[in-house]
Amino acid sequence: MTDLLTPLQAFLFEHWIEPVFQYLGLQAYVENAYDATYLLLLGVIEVIILVAVFRPLEALKPVENWLDRRQVKIDVLYTLLHRLGFIPLALFFILWPITYSLDRSLRLHGFIPLSLEDWFPILYSNMWLSFIVYLLIIDFVGYWIHRLQHRLEWWWALHGLHHSQRQMSYWTDDRNHLLDDILTAALFSLLALLIGVAPNQLVIPLMLTRILQSFAHSNVAIDFGALGEKVLVSPRFHRIHHGIGIGSEGGNQSCNFAVLFPLWDILFGTARFNEPIHATGIQDQLTGRSYGEGFWAQQWLGLKRLGRTMKGLKA
C-alpha cells in the first residue's frame, strides 16, 4: 500500500507542502512535514475504509434501528479531527516540550532510557514479533488507563463524554473530551520514555488496530463466536461496556475495558461476555442530563463536570 501512496505523497509534498514551508522559512521541519503528509494520507484512507466497509454493515445488520442519524454527525467531526491529524498535531505541540525537556534532561545526566529492543534484540530483526510485543504492551496500558477513566471520579467527568453517545456507531471511537485526549496521550508518551517508541514501520499495522477500534463501536449485531470473543474485542463485547448502567457505570460490576484484547478483562476479572445488549449511554441521561450536542458545548460541559468533582461532588 505504501508503494501506491508514494507518488501521491511525493506530489502533494513537493508541490504544495514543501513550498509553503520554504516560503515560511521552516525548512528545518520539512522532513517532519513529509512524514505528516504520509500520516494524513493514511488517515484519509482510514476514513474511506470506515465508510466503505462499516456503513454498509450497519445498514445490513444493525443492533439498533434509528429513525435518523442526527446524533451521529458530531462523532463524524471528532473522527475527522483525529484521523486527519488535527488533534494528534495539537497534542504533539502540547506534549512535545514536556517530553523533550524530560528526555533531554535525563540524557544530559547520563540516563539513556531503555527500549524494548535493548532487552530483546531479536525485535530489531523481526518486524511482526516487534509489532505483537509493542501492541500487547500498549493495549495492556490502554486497559488500565481505561479502568482509571471509569474509576476516578474526576476522570470520569471527562470520559463520560465518550459514553454519552446514545447512537453509538463506528464514528464514536474518537468522541472524547480534549483534556481526556491530552491525559491519555501524556501517559502513552511516558510509556514511550520507558519502553521506547514503536518503530516507524509499524505505522500501518497500528492504523489497522485503530480501524478495529472503530469497528468495536459499530452499530452492528456481530460477535466473533465463543472463542473469537475472547481473542479480539468485538462490537458485541464493547457494546456491553457502553450499555447504560452496565459496562461503564456498574461500580464493581463495570466490565469490558479492553481496547483490543479481552485477555486483560479475563485476567483481571472484568470480562462479561454473556450480558444481554442494552441501549448505550449514561444513566443520568435518562433523567434529562445533557452532555451537549455540539462540539464546544460538549467540551464546556465536560469542564463543568470536572469542576464539580474538584469540589468533592459527583461528576
Binding site: 529492543e117 517508541v197 518503530p199 516507524n200 514501520q201
Partner: peptide, 10 residues
C-alpha cells in the same frame, strides 16, 4: 535490489 531488512528505528 538484493535485500531489505530492518535495522532500527531511524
Amino acid at each position: 535490489p538484493i535485500k531489505h531488512f530492518y535495522v532500527g528505528k531511524e
